[in-house]
Amino acid sequence: MKRLVIAAMCVILSLSAYAAPNKVVVYTAHEEAILNLLAPLFQKETGITLEYVKLASGDVIKRAKAESSNPQADVIWSIGGEQLEANSDILAAYTPKEWSKINPLFKVGTNWLPYTGIMNVFIINTKLVTADKAPKKWTDLADPRFAKMISSARADKSGSSYMQLCNVIAVYKDKGWDIYKGLLKNFAISGSSGAVPKFVNDGEAMVGITLEDNAYRFVKGGGPVQIVYPEDGTVAAPDGLALLKGAPNAEAGKAFIDWCLSKSTQEILVDQMFRRSVRTDCKDPPGLPAIGKIKTVAYDFAWAAKNQGDFTKRFQDLAMDLGL
């Protein structure tokens, strides 16, 4: 018994001895496929090792905050702008090299930078919903024919779902909450926002509210699904990229940020991930309509972040009333 314990201790000690030079540590909610594509590319182009930790976006912030007294990571990569805005105190300001090439529409963050443009869309299961019955507007989602058939995550949990809530309020202002309540009644809450298009694809829900690039992967994959851009307006907002305050490898972190915002990297994201670029000199993703053809509404991050406490409280009250 004693020998076993000693053996275990030895293994532990040998595991903990570790060090690596010239690297950048990144916390990200990026999709694994894209990580596998970008990480070797970055390393090849800059000679810096990219060590990434992939997490759900909520966990990214949780972890960065918990570690803030002794940060373990340098950069937060691709998580919702609201979360970065709400936690800008653990982030360090940085102006990237090609800042002038960034679309001013997206220059909205405090201590964080826009990374790609994302957009709220509906994903429809074409087997369950015929084209004429498909929802066209946010208000259509309140229709009783979609009762418990709309998949979405909780707005107090998921960043993208919070963006949906803000979207409805941004479009309908004072009437926004009443309309959102109608939607919420029809919701079948999904545990993770990433699973929403999957549920629609598998025929477990008729409609899902999700991000454009998420939905498009299923369209592209040949699933029985189709994207609808709400006629009454969708927000186009950036997800974010930020340097952490007290980053152990700050210089490498800055190099990484510059690389992420470079034209070549952004083009890969457009081509492979169907994200919209935040640069003014990139095209739209192939197969997706140009952003100009979609009815977009302005999204004010400061407003969304400022009201976050209030809105989520109201959301929770609504959800509680509905027993969600």
Binding site: G58, Q83, A86, A155, D156, K157, G159, Q316
Partner: peptide
Amino acid sequence: FGTPMIIGGNYLVLPTLAYNLYTSEVA
């Protein structure tokens, strides 16, 4: 929390609640 989250429908249980509250991205 995993099982109720995915197949609970809207049947809320404490661990899901706790998990939501802890991992809540926003609030």
